[in-house]
C-alpha cells in the first residue's frame, strides 16, 4: 500500500463501508447434523481499504463472501447476523434490491476464470451486459466503454478481444476480463475470492499488481480472499485470519507479520515459501488437518493442532480479545498475555 493511501484512510478515521457482524452460515445436510461453515465472523472494511480474509481450505472464506453477496444456494442453509453496507443490512434486503446492488455497488471475482466466464458469449457482451443492466446504456453505447475497460485491465488489442470468446484467451487474460466486468460500474466494494489460485506463478504476480493498481486508482475497497498469507503481505491494509469459521486473529499488515499472536497465524507465516530459502528446504506447514477440529462451543477448535495448548483450550471457548482493528482469540497467545 502506498503511503498516500495510508494517510488518506487512517485507521478508524472513516465510517466502515462494509461492517460484518456475527455472521453465521449453517448448512443443513440431509441426514447429517447441521454444519456451521461460518461461525460468528465480524470484520470491517473502510472505504478504499484492502482487507484480507486468510485461512486454510474449508475455513469458510468463500461461504462468508457468498453470504454477503446473497449468492448462497436458495435452499439448505440459514444465514444469521448482519452485513451492513452503506447503512443497509444486505442480509435483510429483498432479492431484487440485492440484485440492484450486485455488479453496481458490490462486485465479485472468482477463482477459476475459465469456468466463471460463459463459453458461448463474447467477452465484449459479457462486459457490456453489466453496464446495460446498471447504467441504462444500450449495447452500442456500452461497447466503446467495454473496449476502454479491457484496455485499462491490460488486455492487448482490446477491440479485437471484444468479439473473442473465453476459450480464445489465455488464463491471465480471462481473469483480467473478469476484473473488467467487475469494475465496469465503478463498484465501491470488490470481493476477490482467490483470484490468482488457478493461474501460473508469474501471471499471479501480474494480476495482484493489477488489482493493487486499480483499487488505488479508483478508491474501490477490496476484500481479498486467499489461503496464502504471501498474497496478503503485499496487498492488504488489514488481515483477518479465519479458522474453522471464526476470525482467530486480526491486525494491520505490519503488526500481524512482525508480531503474530495466534499460534495458527504463526503456522501460516512459517508456511510461506521464502525466496531466500535454500533450495529444497522443507516448508513448515501447520501440522494436522481441519478434520481434527474440536467444536468451538466447548473448546478452541485449533487445540489438537496447537503447539501452545493449555488446559483451558479443550474445555472453554476462547473469547475475542481486542476490537475491530486488532485482536485475537487465544488463551495462550505468542508473546504472552499483555
Amino acid at each position: 500500500m502506498t503511503q498516500a493511501q495510508a494517510t488518506r484512510h487512517p485507521r478508524g478515521a472513516s465510517e466502515p463501508l462494509l461492517s460484518v457482524r456475527d455472521l453465521r452460515v449453517t448448512f443443513q445436510r440431509q441426514g447429517d447434523a447441521a454444519f456451521k461453515a461460518v461461525d460468528g465472523v465480524s470484520f470491517d472494511v473502510r472505504p478504499g481499504q484492502t482487507v484480507g480474509l486468510v485461512g486454510e481450505s474449508g475455513c469458510g472464506k468463500s461461504v462468508t463472501s457468498l453470504a454477503i453477496m446473497g449468492l448462497l444456494p436458495e435452499r439448505g442453509n440459514t444465514v444469521e447476523g448482519k452485513a451492513v453496507f452503506d447503512g443497509e443490512d444486505l442480509l435483510t434486503l429483498s432479492p431484487s434490491a440485492m440484485r440492484d446492488r450486485r455488479g453496481a455497488e458490490i462486485a465479485m471475482i472468482f477463482q477459476d476464470p475459465l469456468s466463471s466466464l460463459n463459453p458461448v458469449i463474447t467477452i465484449g457482451r459479457q462486459v457490456t451486459e453489466v453496464m446495460e443492466r446498471h447504467q441504462g446504456l444500450s449495447r452500442k453505447q456500452a461497447t466503446p466503454k467495454a473496449r476502454d475497460l479491457l484496455e485499462r485491465v491490460g488486455i492487448p488489442d482490446p477491440k479485437a478481444r471484444l468479439v473473442n470468446y473465453p476459450h480464445q484467451l489465455s488464463g491471465g487474460m480471462r481473469q483480467r476480463a473478469l476484473i473488467a466486468m467487475a469494475l465496469a460500474c465503478n463498484p465501491r466494494l470488490l470481493i476477490a475470492d482467490e483470484p490468482t489460485t488457478a493461474l501460473d506463478v508469474t501471471i499471479q504476480a501480474q494480476i495482484l499488481a493489477l488489482l493493487k493498481e486499480l483499487v488505488v486508482d479508483t478508491g474501490t475497497a477490496l476484500v481479498m480472499i486467499t489461503h496464502d498469507l504471501g498474497v496478503v503481505a503485499g496487498l492488504c491494509d488489514e488481515v483477518n485470519v479465519l479458522y474453522g469459521g471464526k476470525v482467530v486473529e486480526r491486525g494491520g499488515r505490519h503488526g500481524l507479520f512482525k508480531r503474530p499472536r495466534h499460534p495458527y497465524t504463526v503456522g501460516l507465516l512459517n508456511s510461506i515459501p521464502r525466496l531466500d530459502a535454500p533450495l529444497g528446504e522443507k516448508l513448515d506447514p501447520v501440522p494436522g488437518s481441519v478434520a481434527d477440529n474440536l467444536p468451538w462451543a466447548s473448546a478452541c477448535a485449533f487445540a489438537p493442532r496447537c503447539s501452545q495448548v493449555v488446559d483451558a483450550c479443550t474445555s472453554h471457548t476462547p473469547e475475542w480479545e481486542g476490537d475491530h482493528v486488532v485482536g485475537h482469540r487465544c488463551f495462550n497467545p505468542m508473546g504472552g498475555t499483555p
Partner: peptide
C-alpha cells in the same frame, strides 16, 4: 455452473440470466 454464479454476481435480471446464460448453454 460457475458462469451462472458470475451472472448473478453481476446483478443481471433473472430474465437475462435464464435466456442468455442458462438456456443457451
Amino acid at each position: 455452473e460457475d458462469y451462472v454464479r458470475t451472472a448473478e454476481a453481476k446483478g443481471l435480471t433473472t430474465r437475462v440470466i435464464r435466456a442468455r446464460h442458462v438456456l443457451r448453454n
